[in-house]
Write a protein that binds this DNA or RNA. Structure first.
Lengths: 351, 351
DNA sequence: TTTTAACACGAAAACGTTTGCGTTGCCCAA
DNA sequence: TTGGGCAACGCAAACGTTTTCGTGTTAAAA
């Protein structure tokens, strides 16, 4: 087993000083052509690579980005990570991932684990529990210590940081508008409780779309699901609730769901009740994932371009990190970037 | 902005030496009760946390695990990460993620980025391109340098490291056995080219199951897909190929697919051709993901327990890391853990 | 021959920790 | 009075880098 070789070892072996080795490897003109070649040859032979940790310590930066997300088994979030990783790597950064599992405590712990020098900045999406408790001190403290944060998707305005979001209202409005344009008269929405910011916003978009078309919203057409982590029991409950919705509102001819799962479940229930998709019921869901694309019928969805969100977030963070380099303590003006949504038409709506 | 406070600053402020501060914080008996309390109070007030990087440098270990996987937008892989993160966190480790995107070069680069001190060990699943080229020098070199690797799912025997795999042969055999037991006489398999180790093994399981039941395998029932990254074009091609399969083998009454996508696509095509699921065609797929669970009809699948694989892999790696601590250079006996698969019956097979 | 400048290299500090050991100052016993 | 012993603390090294600032040698200029 050949352990990793260090400058010191090379220096000793070649009987020169550590500084000489370092300079030779960095092609300093201070070092003679002769020595330089000798050192470089030796370094190559022993496959020398500078120790990252030592560099991090010296440079006071790790070239590593911390990501904290609620869960990773989720098409949207993994797309975002893909985007982050892509630009991070291109710009010479690594990516370290922490999962909050929608829990406030885990979010705090994870951030503390990483904030002690392991990373240069955070990219994160807030856990549901945190959103519910509205306790954001850990974000504030992190930022106070000079560590920048970029939030995406689930953000909260009061935190001073860059944000990358999707125009949930607009996307939802567009989707519902599409349903209306396609002739739907009684459009139901299946959404989450209001503390989930995106659920609330999408509901708002739904309402605005109706209003724009002079349709009076009916409370009975708005189904708000309490979404915990979905166990199989919850799934059953979801089906029941949707079934109730359909049964007590026979005239429903359009459904807007705030996520894929609600949409496919709605379709499943509707079919059981004898509705034909998209003939007698049209469905659009937010979030474009595997389910939308590959289930039958495939779903018309509002795509959030998760990867683009990740890319943008990473760019924002790294820009700030490398800007901080120049002069510390500048104006601190934060940006909120809105990534456009896109309506992807598939089989669950009429042509 | 309150920058992070260091031992040095505390020492200066309290007019004691750095070592005194360090010892006081670690409750050394060398330090008087008085000083200890003073230091601890001050540290608490300023929210002192030891700098991780400095600790890593000193201890020559980072308490961080590097994960290299082909892609993250994939139910199985993200489940594995969930498992890894879970036990890693519990055991005080962080997790840093690199994506090879199925490319050999990216795999190598990613490993090099991390191997220079950033992490203590790797958990990885090999990229398809690497499998194809059969060039494993980067793994060997990493291990040679004393950095342990744990491979999962896509492994290759010749590398001396711990491995966590699924018994692909057995799982496939079980699935096909189920189809046979359910009365299928002409079972097709939709699989990948042989260089994808798991594809090959699952095909082998299929063949063994047939053999066990004295069924002679027909070449025309074995469809091997060239699976690149799946663009929409590839998807079309996939459909075409499957359609051909059905059309030239009208008697097919069972399909075993090596992944979810192949399975749902097969179902889609079959339906188009007028086949009823599961009445006239039963389908089982390997890999239990969102598609299987939520598409209609839901799929009977072979679950690999991705999370458990991740947990086991992390345990193996950390055990080895913390064992190495005691006495260097022990026997180096590597373990291959097989995680049992499980047949999850849903609507795509008969009861 | 003496001064000077270029050249090639080394010493040391710094990043933030931990820790073995040395060094005080003091009290008590001989 | 002297020595031993202990309590409480500081010094310095080490982890692996980079970089600033010397320093010594040599050859050219005066």
């Amino acid at each position: 087993m050949r352990r990793k070789v260090t400058l010191k070892q090379i220096a000793k072996e070649l009987d020169v000083s550590i500084s000489t080795v370092s300079k030779a490897l960095r092609n300093s003109i201070e070092i003679s052509e002769d020595t330089r070649q000798k050192v470089q040859a030796f370094a190559k032979l022993y496959n020398y690579r500078p120790n990252n940790i030592a560099l991090s310590l010296k440079n006071r930066k790790t070239k590593t980005i911390g990501i904290i997300i609620p869960e990773i088994v989720h098409h949207f979030f993994s797309k975002v990570i893909t985007g982050i990783e892509l630009v991070a790597n291109n710009r010479g950064y690594n990516v370290i991932v922490g999962l909050s599992n929608e829990s406030f405590d885990k979010e705090v712990i994870n951030m503390q684990m990483l904030a002690n020098g392991s990373i240069d900045g955070f990219i994160l999406s807030i856990a549901k529990e945190t959103l519910q408790q509205q306790d954001y001190h850990h974000f504030i403290e992190t930022i106070d210590q000079g560590m920048p944060i970029v939030m995406f998707d689930r953000v909260v305005n009061e935190i001073p940081c860059d944000k990358v979001i999707v125009d949930d209202v607009k996307g939802a409005k567009q989707a519902v508008g599409k349903l209306i344009a396609n002739g739907c008269k009684n459009i139901a929405i299946i959404t989450t409780r209001d503390y989930v910011s995106v659920g609330k916003l999408r509901t708002q978009g739904y309402l605005e779309a109706l209003e724009d078309h002079k349709i009076h919203p009916k409370g009975s057409l708005i189904l708000k699901i309490e979404d915990k982590l979905l166990s199989d029991d919850d799934l059953d409950k979801l089906e029941k609730e949707i079934e109730m919705l359909f049964k007590s509102n026979k005239s429903i001819d359009g459904v807007f769901a705030v996520n894929e799962l609600y949409a496919v479940t709605a379709i499943k229930v509707a079919r059981k009740l004898g509705l034909e998709i998209p003939k007698s019921l049209q469905v659009i869901s937010f979030t474009d994932g595997v389910l939308s694309k590959h289930s039958t019928p495939s779903l018309t969805t509002v795509s959030q371009h998760g990867q683009k969100i990740g890319e943008k977030a990473a760019d924002l963070l790294i820009n700030r990190l490398e800007l901080d380099e120049g002069d510390e303590e500048e104006e601190e003006i934060y940006e909120t970037v809105v990534i456009e949504t896109e309506l992807i038409e598939r089989e669950s709506t009429k042509k």
